[in-house]
Each structure stands twice: as C-alpha cells, then as structure tokens.
Design a binder for these strands. Sequence first.
DNA 1: TTGAAAGCGCTAACAT
DNA 2: ATGTTAGCGCTTTCAA
Lengths: 346, 346
Amino acid sequence: MASASDPRSRVGIADVAREAGVSITTVSHAFSGRGHLAEKTMVHVKGVAARLGYVPNRAASALRGRRSNIVGFVSDDIATTPYAGRVILGAQDAATAHGQLLVLVNSNNDDTIEAAQISALRAQQVDAVVLAHVSHRESTVSEALSGIPAVLVDSVDPSDARVSVVPDETQIARLATQTLIAAGHRAIAHVTVDASGVARDGRVLGYREAMLEAGLQPLIVEGGSEGRALAGRAAFARMIGACAELPTAVFCFNDQMAMGVYQATQALGLGIPNDISVVGVDDFEPVSAELLPGLTTIALPHYEMGRWAVETALAIVNDGADRPSGVTRMPGRLVVRGSVGPARGA
Amino acid sequence: MASASDPRSRVGIADVAREAGVSITTVSHAFSGRGHLAEKTMVHVKGVAARLGYVPNRAASALRGRRSNIVGFVSDDIATTPYAGRVILGAQDAATAHGQLLVLVNSNNDDTIEAAQISALRAQQVDAVVLAHVSHRESTVSEALSGIPAVLVDSVDPSDARVSVVPDETQIARLATQTLIAAGHRAIAHVTVDASGVARDGRVLGYREAMLEAGLQPLIVEGGSEGRALAGRAAFARMIGACAELPTAVFCFNDQMAMGVYQATQALGLGIPNDISVVGVDDFEPVSAELLPGLTTIALPHYEMGRWAVETALAIVNDGADRPSGVTRMPGRLVVRGSVGPARGA
DNA sequence: TTGAAAGCGCTAACAT
DNA sequence: ATGTTAGCGCTTTCAA
C-alpha cells in the first residue's frame, strides 16, 4: 500500500525560493537574519514559507555549519526520582532561551549504556553535553566524552578536568540546623544514612558546624544505607535506645527519612511539631507537601543547576575558551511548612 | 585563546578510508552492514575507525537518506511526577533495540511550548513522534504534527485519527475491587476525585461493575478535584459523616489519596489493615512502598506503554502502512504489600 | 540588496 | 568484493 503523504517536511529551501521568486540565499538570509534583506522581501519570503509549511532542515545546517545547535543531556535516572526532572526543566529553559534543542538520554545508571548514549549524542554532532548524576557523588567522566565540552551536575570529576555544579551541602545542613536553633531547640539530632558520600558527609559537616557554633552538642544517628522511610524509622528507634532524654528536634538527611521519623513518632504517640520538630532536605513534594503536618524542608537548587549547566556549556562552546574547571556550589532554600514548632518548655 | 582540540569528531569517513587504504564506500558498508565485505576488510576498517575515534555523522546520513533514525518523545510533564519516567524508560529501550535515538522534549503542559518543541523535532527530521500526556485524558493532537507518524500515550485523540495506548482503567478498578472482595470484604467504598475525567470515570465504572457483579452495594465518596492526600482525608471524613456503619475496605483513586486515607484512619485510631483495608492505584513507590504498612496497589503499565508506543510508531514508519487508528488498552498489575487484610469478622 | 556556486559527510546507484 | 560519483538541504564566500 502506498504510504500517506510523505512523512518528512518535503518542502525545502528551494521550494520556498521558487515560490517566492527569489534565490535560496535570500530565503536562507530571511531565516538566519544574516545579510541585509529589504523589509518587504523578508515579509514576503516568511509569508510564503509559512504558507508552504517550511521548516529549515537542521540536519542540513548542522552538516554545513560547524554547529548542530543541540546540547545533549545525560541523566542516570529520570525514571525513579523527580529530581532529574527539575534539573531538566532548568536545562531546557536555558537551551530554549539560546535557540538550542536539548536532547535527553537516560543511562539508567549503567556505564555501558551511558557510553553508548554519549556516542549516539556525539554522532548527532551535539555541541556540548551536560551530565547529570542524580545523587551528589564523585564520578569519572566517560571517555566517550573526550573532546566535547561538558559540564557535570550533582557530581564532581575527581580529576578536576571538568566544570561542575553541585548543591552546597554544608550550607544546606547549616540552614536546616539553624532553623531549628532559631526556633529555640537545643537538643537537636541529625538522622542520616550510614554510607559515606558527598551529600551525607557534607550535611553531617554542616550540622556539626552549626551545632558547635551555637555551643550545642551534636548527636548523629544513622539508620541504614538508603535514605528512605525505613532508615528513618530505624534511626529514630536507635536514638530512643541511646538517649536518656529525647531530643526536641530532628534534622533528617532527606524527606523520605523524615517520613520515617513521622511514622516512628506516631507509633510512640508523639506529636509533630508539639513534641518534636522535624526538618528534611529535598522538598520532594509528594512526600513533603503531603505529610501531616507538612514537612519543613530545604529545597535543593535543581532547576538552577540545570540552567547553570546549560548556560555554562554554551559559554564554553561560544568562547572556545577553556572555562576554568572547578565546582560551583549552589545554596538550598528553606521551605516552611508545619513541622517546626517552639522547643518544649522554651 | 585557541580552543582545545576541535570539539566535534573531526574525523570523517574519508579519513578512515584513507588510513585504511580503502574507499569510502567500503567504510560506509562496514558500518551499515550493507554490501558484501571480506571478513578481514571489515575487521581492518573497524579497527582503523576505532583507533581514529571515528563516529559516523548522523546528520549527514539523515540528510542523505530518507531517515534520521530518531524518534521524538514529547512529554507534558517529566518534572513533577515520576510516571513519565517509566514511560520514557520503555520508550528508550524500544528505541535502542531498533537502533534509534530517542529525543525527549518537555512541553511543561503548555500548548505553545508544545507546538514549538514539535516544530523543533520536525526540523530535526524525526521519523516519528510519541506524545505522552501524563494524565489519561482526551487531547487534540497539535497541528504541528501533521504529516508525521505519531502515537499517543495515556491520552486519546478525540478525532480518532491517531493510534494511542492507555491504561485499561476499568480493568484496573475491577482488579482492585476484586482483590478486596476476595479478601472477604463486602462493604467497600471507592474514594475518588470529583472532577470527571477518563481515568476517574473509567475507575468508577470498573468499581461499580465489580461490586454489582458480586451483589454488593457501591459507595462512592469524592474528596476534591486533585488526587492528593488532602483529598483522601477529606473524602474519608465525608464518608464517616455519611455512613451508619464504616466500610471495612477502601479502594482509592490513586496512591496519594490512599496516603490521605492512612492519615485519616490514624487520626481516628483505626489500624490498617486490621480495622480497614486499603488499595491504591499507581504504585508510586515513594508513597506506596514507604507507607506503613506498605500499600497494596495496582501498578499502571507505564513502561509497557512507552515500549509499545515506540514499537508501533516505528512499525508505521517502516510499513508505510496506515496502521489502523484506535486505542489499545493495557492492563494494570496488582502489587501486594501490607494494606489488605481479611474483613472484620470474616 | 540579491544571486551563483561550492561543499559539509554521507549513502546508494552503478560501475568494475 | 570494492570503487566512482551524484546529490541530500543548507550556509557561505564571492560576485553582481
């Protein structure tokens, strides 16, 4: 059976030129803004193009010119967390603002797939790549990326050869802790995971600093290797066993662990925020906004990092300059809901 | 300052041919698998290519051939829910299996942006596009898509001109309801949203059917327009006011509303599943797996729909055949956790 | 202000 | 089994 009308936009620059009675150069100029067209030629050409449904073929421009105007975005996990989504939003806004197309590929946390995806991106002649690894960690940049401007999001290159942007974990933890201190709490525990990592270690550090500065005694409780509700419950249980007197506030590694703390307190008949105040990290809304009471938490700068990454990648492409490598830290933002109250007896 | 080694893979098919001492046709054949190359020529050419870091330029192939080997994926919201993520995973697996690159764009639920993104996709010469609208609904296909094979995910084209794949809402609701019936429950309420929609209406229907078939009396309680915890709490509260005797089980429109039901029962001192059994829909893991007890729920066929969409889109491209338009319904899958118990007194 | 023509890297006839 | 060659649709000198 014959196929329906040709799938691809069969109308090319030559068709527009013929129909408009001008040369293809003129049409090209009308779209690229180069050269100097008479106002009315411009209008005429654009009109004809629109009538014909002409869309410039990017593959052809990419072939002819040096640039494809596409930037690749490699994510290791867009499926199970919504974090990457916000980074993508920021990246896409930046790309759109610069007339670039953002092409997303997902490596599903598999190095082999990642290398293959990067190779595919390279074959598409992407101008630059942003590599977003969901959990803040060290990660070696795939060899496949050599020769392509790249910026890392939420991870740092141990060889320090790439530009990267990460959340300021220490600031985030300080902000959370100081929020609790400002509410009058003095016995503040930090519930976290036991597996060392950039995010965990940075937050532990920030917590310690804030406590020590306020002349308070840090209390760190670990609940398992994964930052989930189960670990939050486990940590809370462990804390009860270990403390003569229960803290009046808990700063949790993330919102999911905070959810576990909610569950543990509930089982004990403790009320939030009356008996105990809680602060999380992430502002993972399906959790933070839905808990009862709403969870006061520190939102991570996902959108901002995505935006910054694309802007920076494009700057590297445009300036040709080797941007000073190094890591940029972006602050978290306090989101106030209902889980922080005054300290008991304060 | 001079830029570092040229950003794009400067080595082309001609370089490989020269270095290997063969013609460019031979190199092309070595990569495309067309023609008939001697085994050792093949190996030799591939070796040289690898050494030179050669990657075929897709833009050039797309320009020359009829096909770009890229399929576009338009999502209206990858940022705030993880559902699209699973669809994307399925779509990407299918694309990779067929040697296609999946290019994702996000419309952020804005028709203007969507049209622009589709136009960009078209300019990239995509072979086909899949349009994923997160919440199962009717949606008119953008004009920008005319002439391009497209398949819809999670939405149907009212004009019925496009192929689409959606969850089988009725089956999903029946499965949920029957799970409760099988556990011995007879007084089973359905907590849902008040805004009519394909998903809501289909689930209400399935619930009704299952109840009536079992000779049971349906009880539908609405909690608001958005399927979130707040609405779940509101619905539960309303139910208490309206019923002489509380149901022993609740089937919720989605996991988030189920979370609201958990909160409402907790406030009342009711235990799950001892006093009341709960079933959700979505298997939204940050909620379903983290609730205490874990939520028994119906997983939506996101991955499968993504896969099917790309497979089907590619089939349309390849066969040139006008695939019979129409909607394909995919079943949900029961995920058993801990929120369903035997009926009280059963 | 506009046009002619070369060529980006590749594939597909068509040789040999 | 391998090589020659003509374009795909566009941008970009260069000329008019």
